[in-house]
Amino acid sequence: MKKVKDLMTEGCVTVTPKDNVYKIAVLMAEHDIGFVPVVEDQDHTKLIGVVTDRDLVRRGIAMKKPGSTAVTEVMTEQPITVSPEELADEATDIMAHYQVRRLPVVDQGKLVGVVTLGDMALKNTSNASHALHDISKHEQLDTHYLQ
């Protein structure tokens, strides 16, 4: 069985609490990503939160916050994480349960990578389609609520 460490992306783009919403948006555009981990500082990779493209829209733009708004005002604190030693199928179960497409990979409190549902699907883990189904079902309900 594959482990998360076999599928994760290492060396991911990060920001610190000193950064702002504009910087996150620029990084997301430059790197074609929708998820940025927030670490204590660039020298120490202690994970303190994450920002998704959805966070930027719901907690930033929709709340009319300017680009100079601090990362900490839009980030999700205490995100669900996974260990690099976790089995890939268990990670997809976590994604399905918590309705997330991306998980920070943390080892002894330090960010070591990110694993995505896409990573799981590309590597043919058995639970990836189940997780995607559960997450998509939730998003359909959420979209219906907004109409």
Rank of each mutant, 00 (worst) to 15 (best):
T143K: 14
K23R: 15
M95Q: 09
K123D: 13
A91V: 05
D89P: 02
K64T: 09
A25L: 13
R101Y: 07
L122K: 13
M95I: 11
A25Y: 10
D43N: 09
V4H: 04
S83H: 03
E90R: 06
D55I: 03
E10A: 06
V74K: 10
R59S: 00
M120E: 07
V26N: 12
L111H: 00
A96W: 00
K64S: 14
K5Q: 15
R58S: 08
K64C: 09
T14N: 01
I24K: 11
L56G: 08
A70G: 12
H144F: 14
M63Q: 14
L141W: 11
K137L: 14
I33L: 10
T69D: 06
L7I: 06
A88F: 09
D107M: 06
M120T: 08
R101H: 12
G60K: 10
A62L: 05
R59Y: 08
D19H: 15
L103E: 03
S83T: 05
V82G: 03
S126A: 12
T76Q: 03
M8F: 02
V57Q: 10
V50M: 03
T72A: 09
V15D: 04
L122I: 04
Q108N: 15
K18I: 02
M63C: 10
I94E: 02
M28Y: 06
E85P: 01
H138W: 11
G49Y: 07
